[in-house]
Design a protein around this nucleic acid. Structure first.
Length: 446
RNA sequence: GUGACCGUAGCUCAGUCGGUUAGAGCGCCAGGUUGUGGCCCUGGAGGUCGUGGGUUCAAUUCCCAUCGGUCACCCCA
């Protein structure tokens, strides 16, 4: 075998059918479309509007927005070098959305912008379950409001998306990260507190202690978790405004009947988060347990050089992980509609007829298909069946000469002869009847 | 970037303690039905056993490297 080209590491093709590639379940394009549509519907119910930003952004935007010190910026970005300019494939969408908000002065549109996005992002990490180099995120950004209810709104929207799919068993954790000064004071205090226990920490724990003590909080090492149980908490380093805004968020969630756990150990990896932080975990995802997460980022605008206040809050969620959760819970997605008519033709003239007739049916709104290989009738009938055709419209040379065609109901098997001219009208009428009582078909998903 | 495991038909996998033509199921194609699908029967196509090198009389099988995959670490939505 000569070289067969294949998609690059960490990316994958979404094929017309649900397929399994190299052991990893990859949903088909129909499943993707279904899930994307359902997400859009939920977003629309919350009256969020879609924003689509370029896949490519200036490197500086991401570096400043996401944070120079983050791993994403330090080593996980795909850079496109155009000589004078350096672009990156976006690793996340919040910074681009903020860029668009600032660039287009969206605050002048009046009111608060409730925006959502859905699309691919890129990170040059080693792939792993639920984690790819080209991955797909959806999420919302509420820009222009620093109201605690906006945080609750983002959380409510996030949960509603998963509810709409029937995903259960996931856990919402929330925390406050306070203001940057409060966090700095806390980080210093935490470091001081941990320093005497340095020897009890793992190697990576010690590295985090030096680099970013807050990151120690979400350690998976049980010994470290036990140790941290007695560590100082961030809340104790926050002032009254921070605490009361955190209380407001929690109160909103309570009033909306949203269950959550407070988790003082929850921290976020990106620099722009402050105040409210939250994460949604699923028990079904393996090591990458986060379905979605988010928080408030009131200083992101300033980090991008804006002198206008640009308070914002939102969540980001992974499509691939949503699929994993759907799959783990045995939820399926409906398959797309079946084919209305398959035209079966025998002979050259009949093939021309089938082509013309298909166009005519399609113009009338029916879906129609036909064979493109000049195959036997048996093969064409098999194809019609495989495509789930409701009707087969059959014609050979003799029929055409006589001005008639055969219409076969693929379900009942009954077949009738019709004048060729009358066939389309008749079919459309039959389809109308059939549509009245069609039911969505279920396929085993992802 | 690090580690572990894995790499045989389109897919899921057997198999060879190193030895003549490498198998199954599903799928695909065709025939059984000289113009009619699903079920059934029969047949066929499709593999340089990921690639390169080494050991050997002989390698798909053993060894090394490499590429690719999976999972995990790091880190993170």
């Amino acid at each position: 075998m000569t070289k067969t080209w294949r998609n690059i590491r960490g990316a994958f093709d979404i094929l017309p059918w649900a397929s399994v590639a190299d052991g990893a379940a990859v949903p088909g394009s129909a499943a993707w479309r279904y899930v994307e549509d359902a997400i859009r519907q939920t977003m629309a119910r919350f009256r969020f509007e879609e924003i689509r930003t370029p896949i490519l952004e200036e490197e500086g935007l991401i570096a400043r927005g996401v944070g120079e010190g983050t791993d994403i910026v330090a080593k996980e970005m795909f850079v496109v070098d155009r000589g004078r300019d350096r672009y990156v494939l976006r690793p996340e969408v919040t910074a681009p959305v903020m860029r668009a908000w600032l660039q287009h002065r969206l605050e002048q549109r009046g009111g608060v912008q409730r925006l959502y996005y859905i699309g691919p992002c890129f990170r040059a990490e080693r792939p792993q379950k639920g984690r790819y180099r080209q991955f797909h995120q959806f999420g919302c950004e509420i820009v222009g409001s620093d109201d605690p209810r906006a945080d609750a709104e983002a959380i409510a929207l996030m949960l509603t998306v998963y509810d709409a799919f029937g995903v259960t068993g996931s856990r919402l954790r929330i925390n406050t990260l306070g203001l940057p000064e409060e966090r700095r004071r806390y980080a210093a205090a935490l470091r001081d507190w941990l320093e005497p226990h340095r020897n009890a920490l793992s190697e990576t724990g010690r590295r985090r202690l030096d680099k970013n003590p807050l990151r120690l909080l979400d350690t998976k090492d049980e010994r470290e978790q036990a140790l941290l149980r007695d560590a100082p908490l961030l809340v104790d380093f926050t002032g009254e405004p921070t605490r009361s805004r955190y209380e407001s968020v929690k109160q909103c969630l309570d009033e909306a009947g949203i269950d959550f756990e407070e988790d003082a150990m929850l921290v976020r990896g990106l620099d722009y988060y402050m105040h409210t932080a939250f994460e949604l975990d699923s028990p079904d995802l393996g090591a990458q347990s986060a379905l979605a997460g988010g928080g408030r980022y009131d200083l992101l605008g300033a980090a991008l050089g804006s002198d206008r206040p640009a308070p914002g809050t939102g969540f980001a969620a992974g499509m691939e992980r949503l699929f994993l959760a759907l799959d783990a819970q045995g939820l399926s997605v409906p398959e797309t509609a079946s084919l209305d008519v398959f035209l079966v033709a025998l002979g050259r003239d009949a093939q021309q007829w089938a082509f013309r007739e298909a166009q005519r049916l399609r113009r009338e709104g029916a879906s129609a298909s036909f064979d493109l290989k000049g195959r036997s009738m048996k093969a064409q009938m098999r194809e019609a069946h495989r495509q789930g055709a409701l009707f087969a419209l059959i014609a050979g040379e003799s029929e055409l000469a006589a001005g008639v065609v055969q219409l076969k109901n693929m379900d009942s098997g009954e077949q009738t002869q019709l004048p060729a001219d009358a066939a389309p009208t008749h079919i459309l009428q039959c389809l109308g009847d059939a549509r009245a009582n069609d039911a969505p078909v279920s396929i085993p998903s992802p």
